[in-house]
Write a protein that binds this DNA or RNA. Structure first.
Length: 554
RNA sequence: GCGCCCGUAGCUCAGCGGAUAGAGCACCCGACUUCUAAUCGGAUGGCCGCAGGUUCGAAUCCUGCCGGGCGCGCCA
């Protein structure tokens, strides 16, 4: 019996009790869905609901009495072993072992499809993340968005959404000029410009450009700079894509800001807003009335020198996404950009859309790097940047992705390089991966011992305490996936996997799948193999949602 | 000054308004004739920043403080 089935049974019991006059409750007050949850304390059964507490006032009866009515009816439901009233009015439900155990087979037969839902079916989502400027390698912050964003995309797809992952490539504007001048300076052995970029990669890129364009340094300086700009951006872009690919992250669309300017999309977006009466001219500039939509002040979209302001690209980009048919544009930004939320949401509203619905902005807090337990200050200009490549080289893709994705993006996280470099088991990814490897190994041993799933499945034999606990965790997976997708919180999957791995390890410790040498193979072994393989299925599916590998051996 | 995020065990962090607030690490004690000990069992460790409010019930929601981080441009 799955939590969903139990929830339905509870709702039916409630409705029946109302119909029978056992509860004086307005049928309209019967909740459409009765939530069941796993009690923290195992002594409180497999599942629990607080529905009686919530309905007591409306029913005009003490909570425990309401719970009693439900308990009597629920106890009649096949598969339910006991329904107990506890505390102020909780209803604690214990399932028959066989009823809970059947899930093992359900999971194995569903395979990778177990946990997939249709919660977000029909939604067309454009998910934009990383979008690091092509003026340097992806640093640690961008790496966090790569890990979290890619995992979120996997989650959204697992819940039925149609997702396009997009990288907004800021290849337009003054920063690119600074980048070009930095390359130029490096090629001539000059120090980096005051407002430019430093670091070894600048010299590397400059050398690569001069190697590619042989007589470059003989050209007029302005032409040199233009070539460095064009070729440098191209090389940086290739390097970024390469790093992302090695990190296991690929985007469906790499969107170039430049194209918005060259295609006239920026002008069209501003013209649209002008038609809607959202812009005005003042002080020689063109302004957008964002303050009418909750922003602190109006924003300049075309500067008095005639150049489009940065936000104009965002206007055009947002409009472009909507015109491409996306219901929702979801953008992940670092905390240092949270000041944009107001104007971005106002822009969304100015177009006549619904902020928070058509446009969703996820703000992630920053990553603090530690070395020897001390904060490491990063500076792009000084070249003291820890890049995605540095991190991967130090700890590997799996550990890096897992470490960055297992915490809520609302929290700034500390990543201690020395800790991760040590490759110690401080990193929970090993704990989870090891559990998966163990399930695989158990499978191999079972096969060698002649334990075969297809010979028997008798869920009534899964009676050990650790089995009930493990099964309950497996049952929760679809709800975890759905909730993680809806809340855009991939870290929930990681935390769940750690919990599941722990329960598996405990079960492994007390329940053998393969008999000892002198023992015969029995149905209990065969049935446990189903449970082992069900756990393996969920661990693999969960790790996949995080973009982390599920090794067969470690 | 204004805005956003955070404040939970020694450390890093979980915790959809529910029961005795959890995990990993660190520290201490135990379990390797093992289906892989990268594991498991046990012990220790908490004014959930502070003060009010809402509620049958608050770490969770609201308000105000305190502390930390990050932002508040005709930069990109």
């Amino acid at each position: 019996m799955t939590p969903a089935e139990l929830s339905s049974a509870l709702r039916d019991a409630l409705a029946a009790a109302v119909a029978a006059g056992e509860l004086s409750l307005d049928p309209a007050d019967v909740p459409a869905e009765v939530r069941v949850e796993r009690p923290k304390n195992r002594e409180h059964g497999d599942w629990a609901t607080s529905v009686a507490l919530q309905l007591a006032k409306k029913a005009g009866a003490p909570p425990r009495q309401v719970a009693g009515v439900l308990a009597a009816r629920l106890a009649q439901v096949p598969g339910v072993r006991a329904a107990d009233i506890a505390g102020p009015g909780f209803l604690n439900i214990t399932l028959e072992a066989a009823s809970a155990g059947r899930l093992a087979r359900t999971v194995v037969e569903a395979g990778a499809g177990y946990g997939r839902t249709s919660a977000l079916a029909g939604q067309r989502i454009n998910l934009e993340f990383v979008s690091a400027n092509p003026t340097g390698p992806i640093h640690i912050g961008g790496t966090r968005w790569a890990a979290v964003g890619d995992s979120l995309a996997r989650l959204l797809r697992a819940t039925g959404a149609d997702v396009t992952c997009e990288y907004y490539f800021n290849d337009h504007g003054a920063q690119i000029d600074r980048f070009a001048r930095s390359l130029l300076a490096a090629a001539h052995g000059e120090p980096a410009p005051e407002d430019g970029y430093g670091g070894a990669y600048i010299a590397d890129i400059a050398a690569a450009v001069t190697a590619k364009v042989p007589d470059l340094l003989a050209l007029p300086r302005a032409e040199q700079q233009e070539t460095f700009r064009r070729e440098g951006v191209e090389l940086m872009f290739a390097e970024i894509r390469q790093s992302l690919a090695e990190f296991g992250v690929t985007f469906d669309v790499y969107f170039h800001e430049e194209s918005l300017h060259s295609s006239g999309a920026v002008e069209r977006a501003i013209a649209r807003l002008r038609e809607l009466g959202r812009v005005y001219e003042a002080d020689g500039a063109t302004w957008l009335r964002t303050s009418e939509f909750g922003d602190d002040k109006d924003r300049v979209v075309v500067k008095s020198d005639g150049q489009p302001a940065y936000i104009s690209g965002d206007l055009a980009y947002y409009l472009d996404k909507r015109e491409r048919g996306f219901d929702r544009a979801v953008i992940m930004l670092g905390a240092d950009h949270h000041g944009y939320i107001g104007r971005m949401m106002a822009m969304c509203a100015a177009f006549g859309d619904v902020p928070g619905e058509n446009l969703e902005i996820l703000i992630g807090q920053l990553v603090n790097l530690l070395r020897d337990g001390k904060p490491l200050r990063m500076s792009k200009r000084a070249g003291t940047v820890v890049t995605m490549e540095d991190l991967v080289e130090a700890v590997g893709v799996d550990a890096a992705r897992y470490a960055l994705a297992r915490s809520s993006v609302d929290t700034s996280i500390d990543v201690d390089l020395d800790l991760l470099v040590r490759r110690s088991n401080d990193n929970p990814v090993f704990y989870v991966q090891y559990a998966h490897a163990r399930t695989a190994n158990v499978g191999v041993n079972a096969a060698q011992s002649g334990v075969r799933r297809e010979d028997a499945f008798d869920p009534a034999l899964l009676t050990h305490e650790t089995e009930a606990v493990l099964l309950a965790a497996l049952a929760e997976f679809p709800a975890v996936v759905t909730r993680a997708a809806e809340l855009r919180e991939p870290h929930r999957v990681a935390r769940y996997l750690e919990e599941l791995a722990g329960r598996y390890h405990k079960w492994y410790d007390s329940c053998r799948v393969t008999p000892r040498a002198e023992e015969a193979v029995e149905d209990v072994h065969r049935t446990r193999l189903w449970l082992n393989d069900a756990t393996r299925t969920v661990l693999a599916a969960g790790l996949d949602l995080l973009g982390v590998s599920a090794p067969e051996r470690m």
